[in-house]
Amino acid sequence: MSAADVAQPAPVPQPATGAAPEPHAAPPAERGRTERRHGQVRGLGPGPVTRWAVAIVVGGLFALPILSMLEFTLRDGDGHSLARWAALLDPDNAARYAPLWQGLRNSLVLAAVTVAIVLLLLAPTMILVTLRFPALRRPLELVALLPISLPAIVLVVGLAPVYLFIGRTFGTGVWPLALAYGVTAMPYAYRAIQASIDATGVRTLAEAARTLGAGWPTVLLRVLAPNLRGGLLAASLISVAVVLGEFTIASLLARQNLQTALLVVNRQDAYAAVILSLLSLLLVLVLLLLIGRVGARGGRGARTEGP
Protein backbone atom coordinates (compact mmCIF):
# COMPACT_ATOMS: atom_id res chain seq x y z
CA MET A 1 0.00 0.00 0.00
CA SER A 2 2.66 2.41 0.99
CA ALA A 3 4.68 1.14 -1.93
CA ALA A 4 1.94 2.22 -4.29
CA ASP A 5 1.97 5.67 -2.69
CA VAL A 6 5.69 5.96 -3.05
CA ALA A 7 5.66 4.73 -6.62
CA GLN A 8 3.23 7.40 -7.68
CA PRO A 9 4.97 10.77 -7.77
CA ALA A 10 2.67 13.77 -7.24
CA PRO A 11 -0.12 12.72 -9.59
CA VAL A 12 -2.23 15.89 -9.73
CA PRO A 13 -0.37 18.70 -11.45
CA GLN A 14 -2.54 21.53 -10.17
CA PRO A 15 -5.11 21.72 -7.36
CA ALA A 16 -8.62 21.62 -8.74
CA THR A 17 -9.75 24.61 -6.72
CA GLY A 18 -7.00 26.91 -7.86
CA ALA A 19 -7.98 26.60 -11.50
CA ALA A 20 -10.03 29.80 -11.86
CA PRO A 21 -7.42 31.98 -13.59
CA GLU A 22 -6.40 29.19 -15.93
CA PRO A 23 -6.80 30.32 -19.56
CA HIS A 24 -8.64 27.27 -20.88
CA ALA A 25 -10.92 27.75 -23.85
CA ALA A 26 -14.18 29.26 -22.69
CA PRO A 27 -17.04 26.79 -22.43
CA PRO A 28 -20.50 27.89 -23.53
CA ALA A 29 -21.78 30.70 -21.35
CA GLU A 30 -24.68 28.86 -19.73
CA ARG A 31 -22.51 25.97 -18.63
CA GLY A 32 -20.04 28.47 -17.23
CA ARG A 33 -22.79 29.71 -14.97
CA THR A 34 -23.78 26.29 -13.65
CA GLU A 35 -20.14 25.38 -13.15
CA ARG A 36 -19.68 28.54 -11.12
CA ARG A 37 -22.60 27.80 -8.83
CA HIS A 38 -20.29 26.95 -5.98
CA GLY A 39 -18.28 30.14 -6.23
CA GLN A 40 -15.47 28.87 -8.41
CA VAL A 41 -14.96 26.72 -11.47
CA ARG A 42 -15.47 23.10 -10.54
CA GLY A 43 -13.05 20.54 -11.78
CA LEU A 44 -13.86 16.88 -12.10
CA GLY A 45 -14.59 16.57 -8.42
CA PRO A 46 -18.05 16.54 -6.86
CA GLY A 47 -19.62 19.53 -5.13
CA PRO A 48 -19.25 20.12 -1.41
CA VAL A 49 -22.74 18.73 -0.71
CA THR A 50 -21.89 15.37 -2.27
CA ARG A 51 -18.50 15.31 -0.57
CA TRP A 52 -19.99 15.92 2.85
CA ALA A 53 -22.88 13.51 2.32
CA VAL A 54 -20.47 10.66 1.46
CA ALA A 55 -18.14 11.64 4.30
CA ILE A 56 -20.93 11.64 6.89
CA VAL A 57 -22.68 8.45 5.74
CA VAL A 58 -19.58 6.29 5.15
CA GLY A 59 -17.60 7.85 8.00
CA GLY A 60 -20.52 7.30 10.36
CA LEU A 61 -20.99 3.68 9.30
CA PHE A 62 -17.29 3.02 9.78
CA ALA A 63 -17.03 4.78 13.13
CA LEU A 64 -20.04 2.92 14.54
CA PRO A 65 -18.41 -0.49 15.25
CA ILE A 66 -15.39 1.16 16.84
CA LEU A 67 -17.59 3.41 19.00
CA SER A 68 -19.64 0.33 19.91
CA MET A 69 -16.48 -1.43 21.09
CA LEU A 70 -15.58 1.59 23.20
CA GLU A 71 -19.09 1.78 24.65
CA PHE A 72 -18.96 -1.95 25.38
CA THR A 73 -15.75 -1.62 27.42
CA LEU A 74 -17.28 1.23 29.44
CA ARG A 75 -20.42 -0.72 30.39
CA ASP A 76 -20.88 -1.15 34.12
CA GLY A 77 -24.22 -2.54 35.17
CA ASP A 78 -26.76 -0.07 33.81
CA GLY A 79 -24.33 2.85 33.70
CA HIS A 80 -20.87 3.43 32.34
CA SER A 81 -17.48 3.58 34.08
CA LEU A 82 -13.81 2.95 33.58
CA ALA A 83 -13.92 -0.08 35.90
CA ARG A 84 -13.17 -2.60 33.10
CA TRP A 85 -10.09 -0.69 32.03
CA ALA A 86 -8.85 -0.47 35.63
CA ALA A 87 -9.48 -4.21 36.13
CA LEU A 88 -7.06 -4.98 33.31
CA LEU A 89 -4.18 -3.57 35.35
CA ASP A 90 -5.35 -5.00 38.68
CA PRO A 91 -2.76 -7.53 39.94
CA ASP A 92 -5.58 -9.65 41.40
CA ASN A 93 -6.72 -10.48 37.87
CA ALA A 94 -3.23 -11.30 36.63
CA ALA A 95 -3.91 -15.05 36.47
CA ARG A 96 -7.06 -14.56 34.41
CA TYR A 97 -5.29 -12.39 31.85
CA ALA A 98 -2.12 -14.51 31.79
CA PRO A 99 -2.89 -16.05 28.35
CA LEU A 100 -3.29 -12.55 26.96
CA TRP A 101 0.13 -11.39 28.12
CA GLN A 102 1.64 -14.69 26.98
CA GLY A 103 0.02 -14.23 23.57
CA LEU A 104 1.29 -10.67 23.34
CA ARG A 105 4.82 -11.79 24.26
CA ASN A 106 4.66 -14.55 21.65
CA SER A 107 3.45 -12.14 19.01
CA LEU A 108 6.29 -9.74 19.79
CA VAL A 109 8.84 -12.56 19.49
CA LEU A 110 7.24 -13.61 16.19
CA ALA A 111 7.30 -10.02 14.95
CA ALA A 112 11.00 -9.73 15.81
CA VAL A 113 11.92 -12.98 14.04
CA THR A 114 9.79 -12.07 11.02
CA VAL A 115 11.49 -8.67 10.76
CA ALA A 116 14.83 -10.48 10.99
CA ILE A 117 13.80 -12.74 8.08
CA VAL A 118 12.79 -9.70 6.04
CA LEU A 119 15.97 -7.73 6.79
CA LEU A 120 18.52 -10.56 6.76
CA LEU A 121 17.09 -12.87 4.11
CA LEU A 122 14.70 -11.06 1.79
CA ALA A 123 16.45 -7.66 1.57
CA PRO A 124 19.99 -8.99 0.90
CA THR A 125 18.61 -11.36 -1.74
CA MET A 126 16.80 -8.49 -3.45
CA ILE A 127 19.97 -6.39 -3.41
CA LEU A 128 22.03 -9.31 -4.72
CA VAL A 129 19.56 -9.89 -7.55
CA THR A 130 19.59 -6.18 -8.42
CA LEU A 131 23.38 -6.04 -8.48
CA ARG A 132 24.42 -9.35 -9.97
CA PHE A 133 21.39 -11.16 -11.41
CA PRO A 134 19.10 -8.56 -13.05
CA ALA A 135 17.58 -11.32 -15.16
CA LEU A 136 16.16 -12.92 -12.00
CA ARG A 137 14.26 -9.80 -11.00
CA ARG A 138 10.94 -10.80 -12.60
CA PRO A 139 10.99 -14.38 -11.26
CA LEU A 140 11.83 -13.06 -7.78
CA GLU A 141 8.96 -10.60 -7.97
CA LEU A 142 6.61 -13.37 -9.05
CA VAL A 143 7.64 -15.56 -6.11
CA ALA A 144 7.56 -12.71 -3.60
CA LEU A 145 4.06 -11.58 -4.59
CA LEU A 146 2.64 -15.11 -4.90
CA PRO A 147 1.55 -15.44 -1.23
CA ILE A 148 -0.97 -12.62 -1.79
CA SER A 149 -3.04 -14.89 -4.02
CA LEU A 150 -2.54 -17.93 -1.80
CA PRO A 151 -5.15 -18.00 1.00
CA ALA A 152 -3.60 -18.54 4.45
CA ILE A 153 -6.07 -21.35 5.05
CA VAL A 154 -4.68 -23.19 1.99
CA LEU A 155 -1.12 -22.58 3.14
CA VAL A 156 -2.03 -24.04 6.54
CA VAL A 157 -3.10 -27.35 4.98
CA GLY A 158 0.40 -27.70 3.56
CA LEU A 159 2.16 -26.23 6.58
CA ALA A 160 0.56 -28.71 9.00
CA PRO A 161 2.86 -31.62 7.98
CA VAL A 162 5.87 -29.28 7.81
CA TYR A 163 5.24 -28.05 11.35
CA LEU A 164 4.59 -31.56 12.56
CA PHE A 165 8.16 -32.30 11.50
CA ILE A 166 9.47 -29.03 12.96
CA GLY A 167 7.69 -29.74 16.24
CA ARG A 168 9.34 -33.16 16.47
CA THR A 169 12.78 -31.82 15.61
CA PHE A 170 12.99 -28.41 17.27
CA GLY A 171 10.29 -28.64 19.94
CA THR A 172 7.00 -26.77 20.00
CA GLY A 173 8.36 -23.31 20.73
CA VAL A 174 6.54 -20.43 19.12
CA TRP A 175 9.37 -18.88 17.10
CA PRO A 176 9.36 -21.35 14.16
CA LEU A 177 5.93 -19.94 13.31
CA ALA A 178 7.74 -16.79 12.19
CA LEU A 179 9.15 -18.79 9.27
CA ALA A 180 5.59 -19.08 7.95
CA TYR A 181 4.87 -15.43 8.76
CA GLY A 182 7.90 -14.39 6.74
CA VAL A 183 6.09 -15.86 3.73
CA THR A 184 2.76 -14.14 4.45
CA ALA A 185 4.46 -10.78 5.03
CA MET A 186 6.74 -11.16 1.99
CA PRO A 187 4.54 -9.46 -0.65
CA TYR A 188 4.17 -6.30 1.43
CA ALA A 189 7.80 -6.23 2.50
CA TYR A 190 8.92 -6.88 -1.07
CA ARG A 191 6.95 -3.94 -2.44
CA ALA A 192 8.26 -1.54 0.19
CA ILE A 193 11.89 -2.57 -0.36
CA GLN A 194 11.60 -2.68 -4.14
CA ALA A 195 10.16 0.86 -4.24
CA SER A 196 13.19 1.98 -2.25
CA ILE A 197 15.63 0.09 -4.51
CA ASP A 198 14.03 1.59 -7.61
CA ALA A 199 14.33 5.10 -6.17
CA THR A 200 18.00 4.65 -5.30
CA GLY A 201 20.83 4.05 -7.71
CA VAL A 202 21.81 0.82 -5.99
CA ARG A 203 24.19 -0.35 -8.74
CA THR A 204 25.98 2.98 -9.00
CA LEU A 205 26.34 3.26 -5.24
CA ALA A 206 27.71 -0.26 -4.95
CA GLU A 207 30.18 0.23 -7.80
CA ALA A 208 31.33 3.56 -6.39
CA ALA A 209 31.89 1.99 -2.98
CA ARG A 210 33.76 -0.95 -4.51
CA THR A 211 35.92 1.45 -6.52
CA LEU A 212 36.83 3.23 -3.32
CA GLY A 213 37.97 -0.05 -1.85
CA ALA A 214 34.99 -1.15 0.21
CA GLY A 215 34.40 -4.86 0.76
CA TRP A 216 30.92 -6.36 0.29
CA PRO A 217 29.98 -6.22 4.01
CA THR A 218 30.80 -2.51 4.05
CA VAL A 219 28.86 -1.94 0.83
CA LEU A 220 25.79 -3.68 2.26
CA LEU A 221 25.84 -2.28 5.80
CA ARG A 222 27.37 1.16 5.44
CA VAL A 223 26.44 2.21 1.91
CA LEU A 224 23.26 0.45 0.77
CA ALA A 225 21.39 -0.09 4.06
CA PRO A 226 21.45 3.63 5.03
CA ASN A 227 20.26 4.59 1.56
CA LEU A 228 17.45 2.03 1.64
CA ARG A 229 16.50 2.69 5.25
CA GLY A 230 13.11 4.16 4.28
CA GLY A 231 12.08 1.02 2.45
CA LEU A 232 13.62 -1.30 5.04
CA LEU A 233 11.81 0.51 7.87
CA ALA A 234 8.50 0.48 6.00
CA ALA A 235 8.96 -3.24 5.25
CA SER A 236 9.70 -3.95 8.93
CA LEU A 237 6.68 -1.98 10.15
CA ILE A 238 4.25 -3.60 7.71
CA SER A 239 5.64 -7.02 8.70
CA VAL A 240 5.00 -6.21 12.36
CA ALA A 241 1.45 -5.14 11.48
CA VAL A 242 0.88 -8.38 9.56
CA VAL A 243 2.25 -10.55 12.39
CA LEU A 244 0.26 -8.79 15.12
CA GLY A 245 -2.95 -9.38 13.18
CA GLU A 246 -2.27 -12.98 12.16
CA PHE A 247 -4.78 -15.55 13.37
CA THR A 248 -5.32 -18.28 10.77
CA ILE A 249 -1.96 -20.04 10.83
CA ALA A 250 -1.39 -19.80 14.59
CA SER A 251 -4.89 -20.99 15.37
CA LEU A 252 -4.81 -24.04 13.10
CA LEU A 253 -1.26 -25.05 14.02
CA ALA A 254 -2.24 -24.79 17.71
CA ARG A 255 0.28 -22.09 18.60
CA GLN A 256 -0.62 -19.14 20.83
CA ASN A 257 -0.29 -15.56 19.63
CA LEU A 258 -2.07 -12.30 20.40
CA GLN A 259 -5.10 -13.04 18.23
CA THR A 260 -5.68 -16.60 19.42
CA ALA A 261 -5.23 -15.40 23.03
CA LEU A 262 -7.88 -12.72 22.48
CA LEU A 263 -10.31 -15.42 21.44
CA VAL A 264 -9.43 -17.57 24.48
CA VAL A 265 -9.77 -14.71 26.99
CA ASN A 266 -12.97 -13.58 25.29
CA ARG A 267 -14.68 -16.72 26.59
CA GLN A 268 -13.98 -15.74 30.22
CA ASP A 269 -13.88 -11.97 30.04
CA ALA A 270 -15.23 -10.36 26.89
CA TYR A 271 -14.45 -6.87 28.22
CA ALA A 272 -10.70 -7.48 28.54
CA ALA A 273 -10.61 -9.00 25.05
CA VAL A 274 -12.37 -6.00 23.53
CA ILE A 275 -10.14 -3.52 25.39
CA LEU A 276 -7.04 -5.32 24.11
CA SER A 277 -8.55 -5.38 20.61
CA LEU A 278 -9.00 -1.64 20.73
CA LEU A 279 -5.45 -1.17 21.93
CA SER A 280 -4.04 -3.42 19.21
CA LEU A 281 -6.04 -1.48 16.63
CA LEU A 282 -4.49 1.71 17.99
CA LEU A 283 -1.04 0.13 17.78
CA VAL A 284 -1.57 -0.83 14.13
CA LEU A 285 -2.79 2.72 13.44
CA VAL A 286 0.41 4.14 14.94
CA LEU A 287 2.54 1.66 12.95
CA LEU A 288 0.85 2.52 9.67
CA LEU A 289 1.04 6.26 10.33
CA LEU A 290 4.77 5.71 10.91
CA ILE A 291 4.98 3.88 7.57
CA GLY A 292 3.24 6.85 5.93
CA ARG A 293 5.75 9.26 7.47
CA VAL A 294 8.69 7.05 6.47
CA GLY A 295 7.30 6.65 2.95
CA ALA A 296 6.77 10.39 2.56
CA ARG A 297 10.27 11.17 3.81
CA GLY A 298 11.84 8.46 1.63
CA GLY A 299 9.95 9.74 -1.41
CA ARG A 300 11.04 13.32 -0.84
CA GLY A 301 14.63 12.28 -0.29
CA ALA A 302 14.65 10.32 -3.54
CA ARG A 303 13.19 13.24 -5.45
CA THR A 304 15.77 15.76 -4.22
CA GLU A 305 18.53 13.28 -5.02
CA GLY A 306 17.17 12.43 -8.46
CA PRO A 307 18.07 15.36 -10.72
Binding site: L64, I66, M69, F72, F247, L262, A270, V274, S277
Partner: peptide, 12 residues
Protein backbone atom coordinates in the same frame (compact mmCIF):
# COMPACT_ATOMS: atom_id res chain seq x y z
CA UNK B 1 -9.58 -8.25 9.87
CA UNK B 2 -10.08 -11.23 12.03
CA UNK B 3 -10.83 -11.58 15.68
CA UNK B 4 -10.90 -7.86 16.44
CA UNK B 5 -13.38 -7.20 13.66
CA UNK B 6 -15.61 -10.00 14.91
CA UNK B 7 -15.57 -8.43 18.40
CA UNK B 8 -16.41 -5.03 16.93
CA UNK B 9 -19.49 -6.40 15.21
CA UNK B 10 -20.57 -8.43 18.23
CA UNK B 11 -20.37 -5.17 20.22
CA UNK B 12 -22.40 -3.40 17.51
Amino acid sequence: GGVTLAFAFIAT
